[in-house]
């Protein structure tokens, strides 16, 4: 099977710091790939490269076998890669519906939309409500309320719903459960599995080992700016994974699935 998202030899330098050092990456169709690594290992840089938020200095990224060169998150989004960023990328003063459709607003049909560029608020709110209900997040009373009035968990829900609603090829989630309570975390994990069942592959970045081992099909261990190895969560313990990513243990095989 060919990877749906493949990166080879990615290099990203910030001044003297090398964040990505000849890094490889593979995501296969329909799987959940967890990316784990110590702080400063370059996970975020890898994710930003894949989602178009940073431009790599060297290396290639292929989506569905086609070479991609992302210069902005908009390019990656148009190619079908949706990302939930750690800081959520929401605009506090705008409403939930406005945020979900930011950058891909729906205009009214007919003259009002075509000539006066009027937004179809009713339709956007209807679809936003539908998505949030699907995720069991409709404890939010008013879809028109500003995001800044929501709790941290609700904001996370809005960001996840946005990615799940629009991702067509790949969904990338950077620490989606970091700010959540037990119950909301459970919802997000169920949502991740739900998205997988619909056939979308997911890249999950997380520090939470129980969550990673629960949902991941494969685990990409990131260390010192590159892929150290890929392990099978069914054949390793969480302590093995922690040992690998901190350098306490050397990997036996670079890829257990090869």
């Amino acid at each position: 099977m060919e990877p749906i998202l493949k990166a080879r030899g990615l290099v990203k330098r910030y001044g003297k710091v090398t964040a990505l050092n000849n890094c490889d990456f593979d995501l296969y169709p329909g799987e959940i790939l967890a990316v784990i690594g110590d702080n400063g290992a370059g996970k975020s840089s890898l994710i930003k490269a894949l989602s178009g938020a940073v431009k790599v200095d060297e290396g290639t990224i292929e989506l569905d076998g086609r070479p991609m060169s992302f210069v902005s998150p908009l390019d990656a989004r148009e190619a079908g890669i949706e990302t939930v960023y750690q800081n959520l990328a929401l605009s506090p003063a705008l409403s939930i519906a406005d945020n979900m459709f930011l950058g891909r607003e729906i205009r009214k049909p007919g003259i009002m939309g075509k000539w006066f560029r009027a937004l179809d608020r009713a339709e956007m709110e209807r679809r936003a409500r539908e998505k949030l209900t699907e995720l069991g997040l409709m404890t939010i009373q008013n879809i028109g309320q500003a995001v800044e009035t929501l709790s941290g968990g609700q904001r996370q829900g809005v960001a996840v719903a946005r990615a799940a609603a629009f991702g067509s090829k790949v969904v990338i989630m950077d620490e989606p459960t970091a700010a959540l309570g037990v119950k909301e975390s459970r919802r997000v994990l169920e949502l991740i599995l739900d998205v997988k069942r619909r056939g979308l592959p997911i890249v999950l970045i997380s520090h939470n080992m129980p969550h990673v081992f629960e949902v991941a099909d494969r685990i990409h261990v990131h260390r010192l700016g590159r892929r150290l190895c890929v392990i099978d969560p069914r054949r390793h313990s969480m302590s093995d994974a922690v040992a690998l990513m901190t350098g306490a243990m050397a990997p036996e095989k670079l890829n257990e699935f090869a």
Binding site: P73, R77, N87, A89, S91, P92, N99, L102, R104
Partner: peptide
């Protein structure tokens, strides 16, 4: 409001 968030959100 937040230029970085807007950029990442696709503005």
């Amino acid at each position: 409001d937040d230029p970085d968030a807007a950029e990442l959100a696709g503005v």
